[in-house]
Amino acid sequence: MYLLPSSLFSCSQLTHLTLNNGLIHPTSGFQGFDRFISLEQRNVTISSELLGSLISHCPLLEKLVLNISKVFVSDIIDINAPKLRLFIYTGKIRSVCLTNVPLLAKECLFCDDSSMEENCFGFAKFFESCTALKGLLLVFTYPEFELAELYIDEVAARLPSDVNSVKLFELPFLKLVESYMLSCVLCLIRSFPFLEYLEIQVENEVDVGSTESLELEGFSDATFNHLRVVRLEHFGGTSHEMQLVRLFLAKSLYWSA
């Protein structure tokens, strides 16, 4: 871990900055980088308050990459970036508040094992200000989801509010062995009513059979009327994979008879 040199904070013409494993301690009177277009921080030690202030003082920021360490478990990073278009985040969803991101079009979220809150994954507030979000790539880390059924009885059918802007949704490295995991996926998909493109990369596992069936009658309010393309990679024909396919076929306007 190294301390970022104080001379960096006087480089007012900087437009792109990538930091790895450093310690940020700005000089007194530092007002931010008003020419920043891209900021990437991976395992950088900085307080959540200072990070939020740094971001808010980058009025031209379009790309933000944050890999947040466990030091931020109880802190909230406030992101006020009116020009932000791409956000790549690794950490706990509950540690981030997207206060002002009206132009944000694409998010890549790598959610760790405490990102999920009961019934709504902690995503409800996260998506509130993402009115321009078109594409979402979401990676759930493990093992929380493998053990989730042990302490959470059920998943809400959908988020409290639909996210109408999302048209592309990618779910790589997804395990569908557990019924709970399948319910998580469906909760998110049903919360994107104008979804057009869905890609799921399945993590191949031994098919232990489904302890409960995904009955189509239970999804009477679910429609995928705008869904045009579904891509399933590493498809192995397991019970839950087949249930997912049957649901799309039954509920999609473009595929229904």
Rank of each mutant, 00 (worst) to 15 (best):
P5G: 03
L3F: 12
C108P: 12
F36N: 01
C120W: 07
T27Q: 06
A156V: 09
H240Y: 01
F123D: 06
I200C: 05
P26D: 01
S48A: 15
T15F: 12
G32K: 04
E149C: 10
L54I: 14
T27L: 15
V73K: 15
F140E: 05
V208Y: 08
F9I: 05
S115F: 06
R35C: 15
A81W: 08
M242T: 00
G29P: 04
S6M: 11
E241V: 07
F126D: 00
I88C: 15
E196G: 06
Q41V: 05
H234P: 05
V230T: 06
S10E: 11
D162M: 05
E212K: 10
V229H: 14
R85P: 10
R246W: 04
L19D: 07
D78R: 13
K134C: 11
S10M: 13
G236E: 12
S6Q: 00
C120Q: 07
P59C: 02
F72A: 03
Q31P: 09
E212Q: 07
P102Y: 08
S165G: 10
I152D: 03
V101T: 03
F33D: 02
L195E: 06
R190G: 00
L86D: 04
S28M: 01
V73I: 11
K83F: 15
T141I: 08
L159I: 03
E144P: 00
Y142D: 09
H25C: 08
S161D: 06
F192T: 03
Y151S: 01
F194Q: 15
G135V: 02
L84T: 03
F248C: 00
L109D: 07
V71I: 02
K251N: 00
F173D: 15
E205H: 10
L232P: 02
T18R: 15
A105K: 04
F30Y: 02
I55E: 05
P160K: 13
N119S: 13
A105M: 13
A132R: 13
Y142K: 09
V44H: 02
K92C: 10
R35T: 01
S183P: 09
G237R: 02
D221G: 06
G22I: 01
C58S: 13
G237M: 00
G218S: 09
L137E: 14
L137Q: 12
I68D: 00
K106R: 11
I55C: 01
D112V: 04
S53G: 15
C11F: 12
C111N: 06
C58N: 14
E217N: 04
L14A: 00
N119Q: 08
E144H: 11
M116T: 06
M181F: 01
